[in-house]
Amino acid sequence: MDKDLIIQITSENLKEIRTENQYTQEKMAEILGITKKMLVHIEKGKTLSNWTTAIAICALFRDSPTLHKQMGADPMEMIELSIYDVDIKPMNKTMGGVIWWKSVKKHRGFKLQQHTLTKHYRILDDENYRVISTFDQKVAKEKWLDIVRKYK
């Protein structure tokens, strides 16, 4: 998922995100740091938000059912992946890949998974904490081999 797609998703779903949080246009514009006029233009599809506004939407409404449905994952994880391509940050607790994830490999409680929608990879530890996320299959497999070697 790249920046343009994130901007498109957040822009096209801004009204739904606002209404699911029961905010007026005035309040939502204030929260996002944009004018009400800009918010109305985005909601009507006349313009797209900019990257900074898209990040604000993902950060402030990261638990939004709409964003999770449209992105298929934690919106902030998608932001990080679009910036860094590989995100190695242990200690982000997950639900273990019950929905949206296909387990590729398992070893001593660790799981290499691929997202069914975005096709990015992640590795979870034995307590379902995210160890790495990446769109690069080679990087995911290299990190997986490191884990298998370490925990024989």
Results as ranks from 00 to 15, higher is better:
L67N: 02
D136Y: 02
C58S: 03
L48E: 09
S64E: 03
T10K: 01
I132G: 01
K93R: 13
T35A: 09
L145W: 14
D2W: 04
N50H: 01
K119F: 15
S133A: 15
K141C: 09
I123T: 08
G97Q: 01
M28P: 14
T47Y: 08
E127V: 13
K138Y: 09
I123S: 06
F61P: 02
M91V: 04
P90V: 07
E77P: 07
L5E: 09
K106R: 15
Q70V: 05
Q22L: 11
V104H: 15
D63Q: 06
S11K: 08
K111A: 02
K111V: 00
L32D: 03
I34L: 12
Q114N: 13
N13F: 04
E127C: 14
D136M: 05
K141A: 15
R149V: 08
L14P: 01
G109I: 08
H68P: 01
R108W: 06
H120S: 06
L117Y: 15
A73H: 07
L5C: 03
K143W: 04
Y23G: 12
F110W: 10
D74Y: 07
R130Q: 12
N13A: 05
I132K: 05
V98Y: 08
Y84F: 13
K143V: 01
S64C: 13
S103W: 11
K143Y: 12
I99Y: 02
W51E: 05
L117M: 15
I55L: 00
P65H: 11
N50R: 11
K141G: 05
W101C: 00
L124W: 04
T118Q: 13
D85H: 09
W101M: 03
R122W: 10
R149A: 11
K105G: 07
T35Y: 07
N21T: 02
P75E: 08
N128Q: 05
T53H: 00
